[in-house]
Nucleic acid binder design. Structure first.
Length: 462
RNA sequence: UGCCGCGUAGCUCAGUGGUAGAGCAGCUGACUGUUAAUCAGCGGGUCGUAGGUUCGAGUCCUACCGCGGCAGCCA
């Protein structure tokens, strides 16, 4: 057996008649007197291959083993289908069953299952229509991201997963240790981290940003694409404890250039998926999110709105809406505010810049008004924040001052400050959440359904 | 983490104080081409867990566990 495989995707494109072997998992089966119809999928495309088995082609006992979930190879002739529903079908002459699936125990059924149920069977949900489409799209999206940056000469850099910097500034972190939790070494009443693997407390990264900034000040345009970990006790359809993030960073680039890249990238990715994932998108459009295709077409073709935080506040104030949270200059935008702006007021993606410095991290570049910083949030309808980024503070004295203002310890940022001390440059970057993007392009409503095996508070099965 | 809702057959759900139900799936059979195939029959339940109220609890009360929605934290 060789890895080279004729996928069902290829078989469906083959001109009949042709002798073929099709490998796959049984999706559904229908019987009539003397004839049996089996639909199989190998995950290579949305459409299943219909295998037709006439009585006498194989023993009764073999036929009985061809049930939903079973894995087999079907040999036979690809012929034009005489019935509606498919243009070609495989007239079977033989079968090799690799793995049976006892129908009285196999949890997946012909019937449509709820997403909640499928989450508990994440190792099988991949065999269905929805998750087949989801993970084919995820593959294409990931690939398109690399293609986008490669075409623009960005250097792909792998920033570390483990960090000893507990000050990456993006939320609670998971600890990483080899110490025996039942028997912790102590010193002066506390844990003696000198005995730990790295000689000090270590964590899983919450962002590759600080590392990629260092690379940018040597390689100019860079990006990371990797997993990120946040130990926040977040229980929403938009949050994961482990998720994937794309973080580009550009030297000699200000907030304008940053916005341009963000908009160009989102449009590029959407265009790519519209071109490459037609069948899967048609499925989402029909069953998951009506008009998702139209929305994507529209977004790919139109300009994003770009407004300042101050303008956003004004729009909200004169909206006439009764918001639960008060709107005033200095307040952070709540979900209800974001939704109003993207879904009602502007009806398209919007980039909001120039935020009050009090509600943004220390590393964002301070504007001349000394009240706002050059942060940018890209909000899209239905999802909310899909990108968060900024022009970075490149001036040593200002950055030092900001670290003080934010009650952080300067010596924790030694190498980060060094980058401003020696050969600093204006630079900008942002983070795009891969799963948020997946939700946007598929229309899936829960982030747990666009990642293979999700990790959230209280749950890391599979 | 807070607020709200839901846990009943393999799945989806009805049952609102008095002998536990339906559809689908499964099994058996029928049907010469099905497309969520159709038709007939059959089996299937400590009603999330632990207490409590009551003559009597799936149903009412309390706690806990699990899931979902909204919100916060953010990508």
């Amino acid at each position: 057996m060789d890895y080279r495989r004729t996928y069902i995707r290829d078989i469906l494109q083959t001109t009949p008649p042709a002798e073929v072997s099709a490998y796959g998992w049984v999706k559904t089966r229908r019987d009539s007197k003397g004839i049996h119809f089996v639909q199989i999928s190998d995950g290579s495309c949305f459409t299943d291959l219909q295998v037709v088995i006439e009585d006498g082609v194989m023993p009764e006992e073999t036929l009985k083993k061809i049930t939903i979930g079973a894995c087999a190879r079907f040999d036979g002739t690809l012929v034009e289908s005489p019935a509606a529903g498919q243009s070609v079908e495989l007239k079977a002459s033989g079968v090799q069953i690799y793995g049976e699936a006892d129908p009285s125990e196999y949890p997946m059924q012909k019937k449509r299952a709820s997403f909640e149920f499928l989450r508990e069977h994440a190792h099988f949900r991949t065999r269905g229509n929805t998750f087949g489409a989801v993970f084919r799209m995820r593959d294409k999206l990931s690939w398109a991201i690399h293609k986008f940056f490669e075409e623009r000469n960005f250097l792909y850099v792998h920033t570390p997963i483990i960090t000893t910097s507990d000050c990456e500034g993006a939320g609670e972190m998971f600890g990483v240790t080899t110490l025996d939790m039942q028997n912790l070494p102590t010193q002066n009443g506390g844990v003696d981290y000198e005995k730990d693997f790295f000689g000090k407390p270590a964590f899983l990264t919450v962002s590759g940003q600080l590392g990629v900034e260092a690379f940018t000040l040597a390689f100019t345009n860079c990006y990371t694409f990797g997993p990120t970990f946040r130990a926040e006790n977040s229980n929403t359809p938009r949050h994961l404890a482990e998720f994937w993030m794309i973080e580009p960073e550009m030297a000699f680039c200000d907030i304008e250039g940053n916005m341009n890249l963000a908009e160009e990238m989102l449009k590029y990715l959407i265009r790519f998926l519209l071109d490459e994932c037609e069948d899967d998108l048609r499925f989402f459009n029909k069953w998951i999110e009506p008009a998702v295709i139209e929305t994507l077409e529209h977004v790919a073709a139109s300009e994003f709105a770009r407004i300042s935080y101050g303008e956003a506040i004004e729009l909200l104030k004169k909206s006439g809406e009764s918001f639960e949270f008060p709107v005033y200059w200095g307040a952070d935008l709540q979900t209800e505010h974001e939704r109003f702006l993207t879904e009602k007021e502007l009806k398209k993606p919007v980039i909001i810049i120039d935020w009050p410095k009090e509600i943004k991290p220390f590393y964002m570049r301070v504007n001349d008004d000394d009240k706002t910083v050059r942060g940018m949030d890209v909000l899209v309808p239905r999802i909310g924040e899909i990108i968060g980024g900024s022009q970075r503070e490149e001036r040593l004295n200002v950055l030092t001052q900001r670290i003080k203002e934010c009650d952080l310890d300067e010596k924790d940022y030694r190498w980060y400050l060094d980058l401003r001390k020696f050969g600093s440059a204006p630079h900008s970057g942002f983070g795009l959440g891969l799963e948020r993007m997946m939700m946007y392009v598929t229309g899936m409503k829960n982030i747990r359904d666009v990642i293979p095996f999700y990790r959230v508070p209280g749950s890391a099965e599979f």
